[in-house]
């Protein structure tokens, strides 16, 4: 599940990149789009003296656990491992096929069961594949709002590949562009600083970031009411 993208020495430091792929087959064009983005990011990172450590979450392998979690709130072992992968990642490439003019249900379900605060300020490249170019806006119109809700830092370049794009050099350019945005954002320490300096200013609830969200806030009206005060 883990490999290191090629890059020249000297290595100064390591960043973690997580791939979430909802591709239905193995290999899938959805995973391929993600892999090309990772490869581009690996090269760009290497040039900056950064080694990218890449972990892949194949949602296909978690399909049963995802539906179980949707219906019973019970997270299986594989899902818990995926959550940990995302929690510790410095950046994410999230890639899904388009079905019926929307992201794969598996993809949507996976992000719906994550704790609300898990991905705050994380850099994310959004990517989708489809059989026709008519689905091109799915990334911006349907995927972006989900990641806005999760308060991630989505990269300005969306990746979309329909059948004809795979032979078009323009796709490579867009991949390169998105990868650069991602590496710069990951390298900027933006997420870390937001979490260190401003974590408390986001709305949290108990368990909203898998237990890492925050200390329990005692200075609130409800806590005062709990301790015999007035509502």
């Amino acid at each position: 599940m883990s490999d290191t993208a090629p890059g020249p020495a000297p290595v100064r430091r390591e960043l973690r990149l997580a791939v979430v792929s909802a591709g239905a087959s193995d290999p899938s064009s959805t995973r391929m789009l993600a892999d090309r983005t990772v490869a581009a990011a690996g090269r760009l990172a290497a040039a900056e003296g950064i080694t990218l450590r890449v972990d892949v979450v194949e949602l296909r392998e978690l399909a049963q656990e995802i539906t179980t979690a949707m219906t019973s709130q019970f997270l299986g072992e594989g899902l818990n491992a995926a959550v940990e992968t995302l929690r510790t990642a410095d950046g994410i490439v999230a890639s899904t096929p388009v079905y019926k003019a929307g992201p794969s249900g598996l993809f949507s379900a996976f992000f719906q069961i994550l704790d609300n605060d898990l991905l705050i300020a994380k850099p994310v490249v959004l990517a989708a594949t489809a059989g026709t170019a008519r689905h091109a806006l799915v990334v911006d119109e349907q995927m972006r709002p989900v990641f806005a809700y999760l308060r991630t830092m989505t990269m300005p370049t969306s990746l979309f590949a329909s059948t004809e794009d795979w032979t078009d050099p323009a796709l490579s350019k867009r991949i390169e562009r998105a990868a650069r945005e991602l590496v710069l954002q990951m390298d900027s320490g933006f997420e870390r600083r937001v979490r260190e300096e401003s974590w408390g200013s986001y709305q949290h609830s108990f368990g909203s970031a898998g237990g890492t969200e925050t200390g329990i806030e005692l200075d609130s009206d409800l806590m005062r009411l709990a301790a015999g005060g007035q509502a």
């Binding site: 409800l222 806590m223 009411l225 709990a226 301790a227």
Partner: peptide, 13 residues
């Protein structure tokens, strides 16, 4: 099962 305020109230009393 998930509410710190309830734990706080139990503790307070």
């Amino acid at each position: 099962i998930r509410t710190p305020e309830i734990a706080e109230q139990a503790a307070y009393y």
